[in-house]
Nucleic acid binder design. Structure first.
Lengths: 202, 202
DNA sequence: ACTTTTAGACTGACCAGTCAGTTCAAAGAA
DNA sequence: TTCTTTGAACTGACTGGTCAGTCTAAAAGT
């Protein structure tokens, strides 16, 4: 069981697949392309994954797992160092931006597939999405309970909105003004979160 | 000459294509399927459009055209009836939600393709996106000039963020809690825009 | 008269998945 | 050390199916 070797191969396949699928979409990316980019024979793909679909599902699980961990860590870090729940939200925005900057392809691919219906990996995607969103909802709920945020807010909807705000702003940043610093982008989003856009002027 | 008959056929093809592509993606939707769903012979597709790609590009132009018109109308309506620029933004959020509720498939498909690189219709997509975003940016800019919004905000980035907020919240609404009323969703997003989430408590 | 649509057979390219055969690396044998 | 064995990992030509796009002659619409 040379599973270190195998693991390295799988990793190469993930990396090859993620960029190709982000660029072209799942269906128009061929297994031959993935194998070639990974520097591996086609058969190896099928030795390591049951099917093209399966490769993709495992890729999704793998990627969202990284995101969830990173969000959770950011939130816990903020709280541990004496921050409020709003600080935790802010830290999660930061972590989200960092994740997207680091794995732009994965993010593209995730967004492209998230709301598609009738696809084989639909249920996997929903599961994995729920895990990520739950992290945000939890902090949002805690902030409301602690009186930091208005108790009129709709937690799940606001979590979605925040998620979308970060997602779209970050993808646009990467696509259209990649030169800007992450601090810049973070500041703009923070401002929105903290109500300093449409709120009373300071 | 674009006869009325021809236009009706094209319309049927758009409608068939948009749902199929939203569900399955562009590449895994076949021209035969589109023709069948539209109740039209395959040859008719090629009589009306140069290729599958061309059909899709025209579909994108058509759809984003509707969105842009609707945003512009909402914004102008708000201003004409004596509203502030922030009211105009709010009206545009509403219009965005209505658009997504009415054309969920188009929205899915748009999001799925927006950040993809290396696709034939990439430039078309960028162009139409820019038109839509410009409408939001214009109002945002006017609001800053009028002193309604902090002049520290980054207009393009905030426009993206707002766009993303509406987009993701609406898609999640449609996908996971379709029973909720549009007013409900609108209220939650308004609150975020107006800074009543993270801002000072009332 | 002229435009548009029909029905569907056909072609050539493309591609997911298979499988018989080859290579690798580790563990033991000499 | 050097040789042999073993099973896991990998290879790539091949197969069977799918699909964009073409083409026809005839019908229907305006």
């Amino acid at each position: 069981m040379n599973s270190a070797r195998r693991e390295a191969t799988r990793q190469k396949l993930y990396e090859a697949a993620v960029t190709l699928i982000a660029e072209q979409g799942f269906s128009s990316t061929t297994v031959d392309e993935i194998a070639e980019r990974a520097g591996v024979a086609k058969g190896t793909v099928y030795y390591n994954f049951a099917s093209k679909n399966d490769l993709f599902e495992e890729l999704l699980r793998h990627g969202v797992g990284l995101l969830t961990a990173s969000l959770r860590e950011a939130s816990e870090g903020a709280v541990a160092s004496g921050g409020s729940n709003v600080d935790a939200l802010d830290a999660m925005i930061r972590a989200g931006l960092e994740f997207i900057a680091r794995y732009p392809s994965f993010t593209q691919l995730y967004v492209a597939e998230l709301w598609r219906t009738n696809r084989a990996w639909q249920s996997t995607l929903m599961m994995v999405r729920q895990e990520a969103v739950a992290v945000v909802e939890k902090v949002l709920g805690a902030a409301v309970d602690a009186g930091e945020l208005s108790d009129e807010i709709d937690v799940p909807l606001t979590a979605s909105a925040l998620f979308g705000m970060v997602l779209v702003a970050a993808l646009d940043w990467q696509a259209f003004q990649p030169a800007r610093s992450i601090d810049d982008v973070h500041a703009a989003l923070s401002r929105l979160l903290q109500g300093r856009v449409g709120g009373p002027r300071v």
